[in-house]
Design a protein around this nucleic acid. Structure first.
Lengths: 341, 341
DNA sequence: TTGTAGGCGTTATCAA
DNA sequence: TTGATAACGCCTACAA
């Protein structure tokens, strides 16, 4: 059994109160007493019981994040980097990070959120991969539970979020391709319920319009944000009678899968066909050829979200509760050639 | 404020005791009473306070995992899949998973482990990427704290673990390369303090010996398990007066980085040079060409580790506390050619 | 400057 | 079969 405050007090012939206050830095403790207390506590290896403190203070000093995805096909570099950002930020604020996994809109997802909220084991929740009508946002807002999100919804509810202007990003990307003589630009997206799909697809269409390219329905496909999904979907697109000369993936993983499909068809990515993604994960630097992508600062965003969440939990006002960042178009060899030359 | 058991009791004109027992499934509660209690509790949205329960029961129903690695360069697919496995297993046992991040042997790492152990906020800890003399194992064993690990140490301490026989795996891999006429087989490893490095390197050497190939020191390099590390290290190896014809990476990421370095030197992976990795992550399927690798069941292993940890926590004996699995050699195009043809 | 006492929400012991 | 009561370990009015 671990050391309790009572044992420390007994050892020092002091009351629990005094020990508690000395340790918490109250100023109504004699400097000398404080010294003794601190030294002894450390020597005895005393660390307050998290449970007792939580019960008393009515907060958990813990934030929660539920990984959206269906295991075991979960190797999403976005989530990995996001979790790293959350974890580091949490640690540096002396918080803990509670993690669970649940497929979007599954029953399991409902369970976990309900459990965390009702049992008060986290003080706030970070949401990612928002859906247009995200039940999680409704639920948390209803329960007046602190939340921050990576992305927005279509709901009439106000909550703090950080978001990438991925629409503009995709416009730039299409422009980049059009300038290199592409007219048949395919798009492999995600299920339409995700905000990211709606935004990125809108950018794709807007980009086509700006370039004076008619939108060809046959070049638009839906996938599931995974490599394998991108691979299979690209195979279908490449089997079209008139195949696309460029493929945009809704994320890097999709694009990486598409690259493989192209290679298997005997196409050389970066000269026969252009392929681009979104996220700017480390993967994209090391593909063959390196992948053109729209880079978003995943790690930093996660850290900032934690800061925002802490303010929300503390009830402090947020200077800026809707932060919109521009992704950076990183042009690499996978698209950097002119189709007509 | 959330609903407490007291409110449920009041509503039902019952004592808290009865409500508590009805909900926990004790059999000394009238069936009828139980019905009423359960229905009312659900209707009121009652969920027990985690903190109160923890305090009373003296356990947290939470397990912890600290991601080894230095952010923000943390996009390790191994960890991602491992966390998914832990998370799903935890959820299915109605446990929570607490996550933090800390670079190996850093001060931060010491802090986190000490905090979790002393404040009793986790009931057990899962360790990965063990070191030969892993202070974490010593520390946890000293405190009689439940742990399970992915891999072993050189310490004279007994603890449950699951481990891959990566040594034999690497022997097979070298054999595979030698059979395809490779004699200059390079190895890009990890820091020597990691058990995985010692094991895999031993397998590499054993494989060379078995094939009658003298070990050439200049073909052995150390890196940091990342893509970028593999890339830079491979650049040096490929710049040797007599370059290697094959490169083995200690993990897939290293190999993926090496593939990029090879391409940039104008070499065609899969005909000019062979490259192989270890882990069998999803990445390896989609590289160009697909990467030969030794596949280990990361997700399943994580799940089994949780099962073992639960038994340890419950004080139940483990049928088998040292599980050793064979990795599967998956031969793909990156090595599947004969150098002499 | 220090100590006493009450309670956070549960569960477990004992009595009714 | 049910209920009163005492912890679990900590924090904080309030009293001394």
């Amino acid at each position: 059994m671990a050391v309790t405050i009572r044992e420390v007090a007994k050892r020092l012939h002091l009351s629990i109160t005094t020990v508690s206050r000395a340790l918490d830095g109250y100023d109504d403790v004699a400097a000398k007493t404080r010294q003794r207390v601190i030294r002894t506590a450390r020597a005895m290896g005393y660390v307050p019981s998290r449970a007792a403190r939580q019960l008393r203070r009515q907060r958990a000093d813990t934030i929660g994040y539920i990984i959206p995805g269906r295991a075991p096909y979960f190797t999403d570099p976005f989530s990995a980097e996001f979790i790293a950002g959350l974890g580091d930020a949490a640690t540096s604020h002396n918080l803990d990070l509670l993690i669970s996994t649940a497929p979007p809109d599954s029953e399991a997802e409902h369970h976990v959120y309900a459990r965390w909220v009702q049992s008060r084991q986290v003080d706030g929740i970070v949401l990612s991969r928002l859906r247009l009508k995200d039940w999680r946002v409704k639920y948390l807002a209803q329960n007046d539970f602190p939340l921050v999100a990576h992305g927005h919804t279509q709901l009439r509810l106000d909550f703090p979020y950080i978001e990438m202007d991925s629409r503009t990003g995709f416009v730039q990307l299409v422009k980049h391709l059009a300038e290199r003589s592409h007219r048949r630009i395919a798009y492999i997206g995600a299920p339409a319920k995700f905000t990211l799909q709606v935004e990125r697809f809108a950018g794709y269409q807007q980009g086509l319009a700006a370039a004076g390219i008619a939108c060809d329905e046959t070049l638009i496909a839906e996938s599931d944000l995974t490599r394998t999904g991108g691979y299979q979907t690209a195979q279908r697109l490449l089997a079209l009678p008139e195949r696309p000369t460029a493929i945009i993936g809704v994320n890097d993983l999709t694009a990486i899968g598409a690259m493989r499909a192209a290679r298997e068809q005997g196409l050389v990515v970066g000269s026969d066909i252009a392929i681009a993604g979104y996220d700017g994960t480390e993967d994209s630097e090391h593909t063959d050829p390196p992948l053109t992508t729209l880079k978003q600062p995943i790690y930093d965003t996660a850290q900032r979200l934690v800061e925002m969440l802490l303010k929300r939990i503390a009830g402090e006002p947020l200077a800026d509760s809707h932060i919109i960042l521009q992704p950076e178009l990183i042009i690499r060899e996978s698209t950097n050639f002119d189709l007509s030359s």
